[in-house]
Nucleic acid binder design. Structure first.
Lengths: 339, 339
DNA sequence: TTTGAATTTGAAATCGCTTTGAATAATTCG
DNA sequence: CGAATTATTCAAAGCGATTTCAAATTCAAA
């Protein structure tokens, strides 16, 4: 069913039908009613490509994912939130997967040149993110999930990683811990640097030296975390507490602690960052896990809204949101063992 | 940069430029070279909407996800595989998220009517899947990940869930287990029914009665699995083995076993189905987990190829692939305890 | 009634590309 | 050398919507 046929069927011009359906005021109410009734009955929907060509709007938002690494649980939670809200606005989500960093830049260029999307969601930034530079240069609107320090104004939404780690570390210090290990993500990524800052600040405020053997930088899988934690537990004196970068990391650390014959929450404490996965609940772990918590899904939802604002013309400089992070204390964090 | 401008710049007609870039034979090699060089230098890329409108092809494949429930780790693995292969073919992936079953049907209708996609990937089917019926009626090409029994030919790719569970159950029976619990997905879904069939067949072949208190149907999260396993372990005589539907389920069962003061692999055995998540490795669990294994990501990759074949005109009746499932024995499955 | 304004409708241009059908230039062949 | 191919190129017609500009109709005021 095309607009043309619908118009013919109704004995009207395409112009009038189009106007009626798009809610323009200069059309008789009776006609409008007749048109929308017929459209609904015949299941008419404008052809997306034609509409896009005519309006110049793509009606889609793009997101580029780096192949295997990035399609983890974090991303899917985020996408769930983002996609949900965008569906409400009848905006499509165009997902592109790429293999390498280089391909990623090319992918943005392609998206821009072919005008497939009206905006882009950028994520997992580094401190000096060249993708953000590129998008600014290309003039394609975007919202960054995270922050970068490229010296140009970028619209962003981020959680307060620095504050979160400062509080978590402080809490462990209050409990008497002095050797606190930090299992962080890969260096270079902004959130990793921010978390390290928070951690160091808390230590420095108490005059506790930074020990680099207690810091690990890796991807967030239980396997790698297990190995890192295992070797850290062999240090003497060994760490009495862990700050885990994700729930997957926490699982690995947990395994290492158990295998070393130690008790989580007594011999060793842990606070993990929880992005709120519906299938991995800190409350259901044994012992229950103390966490710094911030919902990835909610961030996705909100970013969809911010994209909407950008497209509606809100100046990019006015878009930045820093979300506080909850510290939820449960059984996995207890007083440092007497020695 | 538009085709028109590029043509003007070169002193050629749009026709020739278009043909040169699209590899038509009737264009002088020298001209073609000149054109593609200029196109590359000026960064020309055809406008996607215009191209789609002119060719009638959308250059995109759609996938509808049911909001929160479905955006789990399974889906993201699958999407990773699917998207990767589709990117090679320069085909976009249009992801739509919906809240309810009803919305999902509407979403397919919309995709069809607005011609946003050339084909659709359908997944998580029920035995009588009405979405498959709808897609057939709408005449929109698709490939089903899984199977359905609606009596009309549907192109599909599936793993041999029935065979997998029959073998896993048989293995446990060989080890002397007689009370084997099955933690399956929600009734109605095809793979759930298939797994149950395999399980029942193995039991029946040894003359062992089916005990419905040993069967659980739920979503695959560790939380629910924990509760189910916990209550099953309170039965007397209690189950000596578990068949877990997913790795998340396995985590929950594991927790229940430990909490009951039992030893996995000795007091109680378990074989879990492993969709091969990079961040949850059966080999790295403690004890290592026996699994029925089949890569979700690979399935996604292959489905992208099948979609390609369908769009290239291969008859849908010729497209069905049944993948065998590996049984990988590790430490979590041992002989039934003497009693 | 006329007339001027306000409503309502339509014809045609436009978006940026592909493709058909025709025209021109270059080759080949008898 | 002229006719018949063959190789190149181009003008113009779509694709299916929106939107501009003009026309027709209705209505109210003079």
């Amino acid at each position: 069913m095309r607009l043309k046929e619908l118009a013919q069927h109704l004995g009207l011009s395409q112009t009038t039908v189009s106007r009626a359906l798009n809610g323009y005021p200069e059309v008789n109410e009776a006609t409008r009613h007749r048109v929308s009734e017929a459209a609904a009955r015949l299941g008419y929907r404008p052809n997306a490509s034609a509409l896009r060509l005519a309006t110049g709007r793509a009606g889609a938002v793009g997101m580029v994912l780096r192949g295997s690494e990035e399609f983890g649980p974090h991303t899917s939670e985020f996408l769930g939130g983002l996609g949900g809200r965008m569906a409400d606005a009848e905006i499509d989500l165009l997902v592109t997967t790429v293999a390498s960093q280089h391909d990623e830049m090319a992918a943005y260029r392609r998206l821009a040149a072919s005008q497939k999307v009206d905006a882009v969601v950028l994520h997992s930034p580094t401190l000096r993110d060249e993708r953000a530079e590129l998008l600014l240069d290309l003039g394609i609107p975007f919202v960054l999930h995270g922050r970068t320090e490229i010296g140009r104004p970028v619209p962003w939404l981020d959680i307060d990683n620095e504050g979160a780690l400062e509080r978590a570390t402080n809490h462990l210090l209050d409990l008497g811990h002095r050797r606190i290990a930090l299992l962080n993500g890969l260096k270079g990524q902004t959130f990793v640097e921010h978390r390290e800052r928070g951690y160091r600040q808390a230590l420095a405020a108490r005059g506790i030296g930074f020990d680099k053997t207690l810091m690990g930088n890796s991807i967030f899988t239980d396997e790698v975390a297990f190995r890192l934690a295992q070797s850290m537990l062999e240090l003497r004196p060994r760490p009495t507490a862990f700050l885990a970068g994700s729930m997957m990391t926490a699982l690995g650390v947990f395994r290492a602690i158990r295998q070393a014959g130690l008790q989580l929450g007594q011999d060793v404490s842990m606070i993990a960052h929880d992005d709120v996965f519906p299938y991995l609940n800190a409350d259901n772990m044994y012992p229950t896990m103390s966490t710094t918590r911030s919902s990835m899904r909610q961030a996705g939802t909100r970013i969809a809204e911010l994209i909407g604002q950008i497209l509606a013309g809100k100046p990019a400089e006015q878009i930045h949101e820093l979300w506080p992070v909850e510290l939820v204390l449960r059984e996995s964090s207890g007083p440092a063992p007497a020695r």
